[in-house]
Structures are given as structure tokens and as C-alpha cells.
Write a protein that binds this DNA or RNA. Structure first.
Lengths: 336, 336
DNA sequence: GATTTTTGATTAATCGTTTAACCTCTTACT
DNA sequence: AGTAAGAGGTTAAACGATTAATCAAAAATC
């Protein structure tokens, strides 16, 4: 079925498209179009089921009312939830969302940016991949508004929405210490993401503060070999001559795999070893022992990212802004 | 920064936009444009960082190369994963994805359809809400190609990608029976979704076949009061005079809440009661006992949905097609 | 040398909207 | 009556791209 255009309505009514456009956009101030005609146009539009062509409008107006969202990982709950919340908030503000995916690949991020740019997005919300600073700088030079979420580069003055990675990690580690842990291991990614490193720094500082810092029980795993590497480092950790009594996992995926590894090695979580996990997971509510974890306020992050971006787009705001939302330390399973 | 258009390149080179367009689209067959000119245009385009305006092109060509994705629930891992896989497959085929969200609300689904239609999507992939048949019929009348995923309406001859809900549920229930369960309860949604009811039917038929069917231990929960209702019905189930020894949960969210409820009531899963959960969850890999569950092939569903839709768009296929992909019964936690 | 072909481009219309500028009647005012 | 103002529209250009039709000059053919 051919789509109904302004022209179709105009033709049926014997008026010009200008008149129709004026009426349908509520722009007939000062009685430019008569009541009667207005009504006829409105009626006809409804009758024909007219839906304006957003592309044409966007082309003419130079505004697409679309924002691009570039996320990292297809199969990660965190990004999925973030994406869908962003969509909801954006829609509330009258913007549509087109998504792009990087799979943590720099090249894919570049492609996504170009593709979305070609689709005339007015701005971008991005969870940048490692070493993507130059792409962001290009965006800045081209004056394309964007907001980073979840991750950022401290050396770049850009809009961002992050959680308090350092602080919450420090506090979480302190918790373990308060519980009596003396040798707290770490499992983190081997990479160069600021936000992950901040988590590590928080952990390290808490240990130093308590005087129990030991680099020997800090392990790194590769993103592309997460399962195997985690299994391996868990093995390392538990076979230390001086037994460890706690572990801090710096991401969701590491937490899951770390817990799996501990269980597989018949470690009794909470009795033999205390753990602290980054990110929420349904599993933590279900396990027969209480798993303390750091809950990221995903919805709030989404909200802030959308607002920050749209403020930029609508010129409500100048300069860059760094928003930090607080993660929450969930100790007891009061939800059960 | 003003976006670079064909016109800009043309002006700088002193040629017409037509020439530029021809070259940049590789349409200069039969030597319509000279080698030299071609190269100059290509170079200039690269120099100016030209990115074609997909909106303008779409307007002109009557093809947006965009598909709309309408999913149900923001915070559900299943849909998030589905959405992102669909995006990846669509991109591989040269299509962008715009997402809409229904939150299981009929009105929101209608809005989403209109919004996406206005954005000239060429087709839609939809997880339809309850009672949305009339919206789909409208789509059919307007000859807008679409594919339903995860859910469908058996009375409508439409394209769909579903899993083998009935069969896998039947088999899963048989498993419980084989394990020796004699009284297997059910927790499902109180609603009118065909796919969920098929799951129930599979469960029921398996019980009937085994001669242990009992409507008294089939419970329903409301979507909007999932947590409370689940807690309540779990209470009902475990306080039956004749003790139940198994439960079948028909969705992911019900499974999670159901397990929570059982644990809260100090039921010993696997010893006191066998369970069977619909949908994968990290939790099931981590629990100290093995939780059998039905794993949906989300990626395959996404792939099929995208292919089905694009075949329609590109006229490779006529009529409607119902694809059924097989879910997998995961019994042992061999992943740990 | 005249005509045809080929080469290498341009012109102009079009997609669906928007909007500044213009036009033509009525009606009102002095 | 003459003119200004208001009412109610229309015209036409523009957004950025595509493409059928056309054109001019050079090369090839007879």
C-alpha cells in the first residue's frame, strides 16, 4: 500500500500541500486557515490514516530527532538493560533510538559511528571501546554531541555518566576487611579501561590502608578467554600457600565465572572465602548464601545520559559535564 | 560542523552532483565518467570525509534500509539479548534497527508501530502484546511486512519465529516424571498468550499421559504483581495436604521468583522438590544443585526473524512462513 | 568531409515536508 | 468611494540524493 502523503490529502481536498502542512502542524496562527478547512483537513488525514514522513521532515528541518546508541556487548545484561532504558527515556523526549554494536571492537565502533552519522543522528550515547579516544576526538572536532556511559577517558573533557567506581570499590573492599578478611584476592580484566582500573584502585587503596596489600593475589583475565582464564586464576588464588579468605571481582561477567570457579573447586563461599561481586545478578538473590554485590543504577544512568545529550542538542547546556551516579552496596538478600 | 553533501564535493570540483553521485555509487558503467574524474571525486570525498545522507537517499529511493523492532519488556534479559542479536544480523544485511518498547501495553505497541512507520521502516519485527491482533491485521492490510518473534496468534496467518513450546514443555515435564515426581505443580502467567498457553498444554498433556494430572496444583500469577503473586502461590503449592514433589515454571521471570520463593520457604530444591525452569539464567549455573532448564536459542531466533523479514522485503519470498526453532533441555550443569 | 558513435558529462524532475513571501478576495474604516 | 487591514489561501524554493533524458565534443566510420 502506498503511503499517504501530504500531497494525497491536498489533492483530495483540492488545496495546496502548504495548507495541509500548516494545519497538521498546528501552525495556522492568526487564522491563516479557516476553521472549516482545518477540520476538513484533520478529518481527511484521519480518514486516510496519514502518518507524516519523519525522514522527509528531518531532511527539510535538518533535524532527525534520532539519537544513536553504541553499546559494547551483545550478550551482556547490563548493556541490554541500559539500551532499553535509554530507548524509553529518549522516546519520552520525542527521540528515536538507533542502535549500533561494537562487540568491544574498535573497528566496529568506527563503523557504527559512521553508519549512525549517515542516518543523521543528532547525537550519540556511547559505551566506548578501548583505545577509541581518536574517534571521540573526531566527534568533538565535527561538533557532534555525544555522551559516554559506563566508561570514559579521564584525559578527555567529554560528557559522561559514570558510577563512583573508585569509591564503591573502596567501600566494598572495606566491607570484606570488616568481615575479618586478611588476604583478599582480586580478579579483573587485563585491559586499559579507566572505569575498571578505578575499581582496582579502590580495592588496592583499601588494602593498603589496612596494611594487607599483596600484589601476588591480584589476577587478570582476558576478555576473549574469560571462562578459561577465570578458571585458571581461581586455581592460582586458592592454591596459594597462605590461604586467601576473600575475593573481589571487578565485573559482572568475572563475578559469574569466578563464583562458578569457586564452586567447582568446592570452595565454600561465605565460610572459606568471602566474595564481593560487581554488578547485580539474579543468581545472587537465589544462592543459598548471601552474596554481597555492587548494584549499578542502570536506569538512572540511562536517564542521565539521555538528559545530558538532549540538553546539548537543544542548546540548554554548554560545555561538558561529568555526571557520577552512585552505585549501591547490597549486602543482605533482603529481597528474598 | 556542517555536514558535507554531494553538492559540496561537486562545487569544489566544478562538476555536477549527478556526476558525483554516479561515481560514489559505482554506477558509472560503460565509462560514463572518466577514470581521472572518478579518482578526483573519490579523493575529494575522502578528503572532506563525506558520509552520504541516508535519510535523503531513503526519501528518494523509497527505501529506508531500516527495520523496526518492537519488544515487550525493558528489563528482561531475553528481550535485551534478542534485540541486540537482531541488530547485529540486520546490520550484516545492511539494515539499521530502530527499537520501540511496549512494556506489554497495547497502546504503547500501537504508538510504537506508528512512530516506526513514520520513520519509514521497511518492515517490523515484533513481540506482540496481548490482544494486539487488530494492530497486526492493520499491518497486513497496509502491506507492511512484519515478523512476530517469541509469540504469535495461531488464528493469524503471519510470519513468525517461535520455539517448540508445546513439545519442549511436554518433554521437560516427562523428565520430571521420569525422575519420579508424582505431583508436579505449575506456575504460569494469568494471561492469554498463545506461546505461554502452549507451554502449559505441554505440561498438562504430559501429566495426563502419566495419569497424574491435577488442576488443583496449577497456579497463575499476574504480570504486574509477579513477585507477590509468586510468593503467594508458592505458599499454596507447598502447603498442599498431599505434598507436591515437582514444579514447572513457564517463564524466566516466574522461574526466578519461584526459586526465590522455594528457598525462602526452606524447601530443599532437588531433594524435597524437583523443578523445571523456562529460560536460561546465570543463576542456574551457579546454584549448588543442578537446576534443569529450557534454553531458548535466542541467537537463532534473531537470525531467523531477520532473515524472514528481509526475504520478504526483498521479495525473495511470498506468503507467510512459520519458523519453529527448537529449544534445548539442559539437565546437567556441564558448563561448570 | 559528412555522419555516426562513443565518451563524458549535465539538466531537471522527483521523493515528502516546511515556510517565507506573495496573492486575492472580503470587510472595515474614514 | 478609496484604501487599509484581515482572512484564507497559494507559490515556489529548499533539504540531499538519484536517475532518465539530454547534450556537446571528440573519435571513428564510410
Amino acid at each position: 500500500m502506498k503511503r499517504v502523503s501530504l500531497k494525497d490529502i491536498a489533492k483530495e481536498l483540492g488545496v495546496s500541500t502548504a495548507t495541509v502542512s500548516l494545519v497538521l502542524n498546528g501552525k495556522n496562527e492568526k487564522g491563516r486557515v479557516s476553521k472549516k478547512m482545518s477540520q476538513k483537513i484533520l478529518d481527511k488525514a484521519a480518514e486516510l490514516n496519514y502518518v507524516p514522513n519523519t525522514l522527509a521532515k528531518g531532511l527539510k528541518m535538518g533535524k532527525s530527532r534520532t539519537i544513536g546508541l553504541i553499546v559494547a556487548d551483545v550478550s551482556n545484561l547490563f548493556f541490554g538493560t541500559l539500551a532499553l532504558h535509554i530507548q524509553v527515556f529518549a522516546e519520552q523526549k520525542g527521540y528515536s533510538v538507533i542502535i549500533g554494536n561494537t562487540n568491544e571492537q574498535l573497528k566496529a565502533m568506527e563503523n557504527a559511528i559512521n553508519s549512525l552519522y549517515g542516518r543523521q543522528v543528532e547525537g550519540l550515547i556511547i559505551t566506548p571501546t578501548e583505545k577509541s579516544q581518536h574517534l571521540l576526538i573526531k566527534l568533538i572536532n565535527n561538533k557532534i554531541p555525544f555522551v559516554l556511559v559506563d566508561r570514559s577517558f579521564p584525559e578527555l573533557a567529554v560528557n559522561s555518566v559514570l558510577i563512583n567506581n573508585y569509591e564503591i570499590s573502596y567501600q566494598s573492599t572495606e566491607q570484606l576487611i570488616q568481615k575479618g578478611c586478611k588476604r583478599i584476592g582480586l580478579v579483573t580484566y587485563k585491559q586499559d579501561h579507566y572505569h575498571i582500573n578505578e575499581r582496582r584502585r579502590g580495592y588496592e587503596d583499601a588494602l593498603k590502608q589496612a596494611g594487607i596489600y599483596d600484589p601476588d593475589i591480584m589476577e587478570e583475565v582476558r576478555y576473549d578467554f574469560l571462562e578459561n582464564d577465570t578458571r585458571k586464576v581461581i586455581g592460582n588464588l586458592i592454591s596459594q600457600k597462605e590461604k586467601i579468605d576473600g575475593v573481589f571481582f571487578t565485573t559482572n561477567s568475572i563475578s559469574i565465572n569466578g563464583v562458578k570457579g569457586l564452586i567447582k573447586n568446592h570452595i565454600n563461599i561465605q565460610e572459606d572465602i568471602q566474595i564481593m561481586c560487581f554488578d547485580e545478578n539474579d543468581a545472587f538473590y537465589i544462592l543459598p548464601y548471601s552474596v554481597p554485590f555492587i548494584k549499578q543504577p542502570i536506569k538512572e544512568m540511562a536517564k542521565n545520559a539521555v538528559e545530558l545529550l538532549i540538553d546539548q542538542l537543544e542548546m540548554k547546556s554548554e560545555g561538558t559535564k561529568q555526571v557520577v551516579v552512585n552505585a549501591e552496596l547490597v549486602l543482605s538478600r533482603n529481597s528474598i
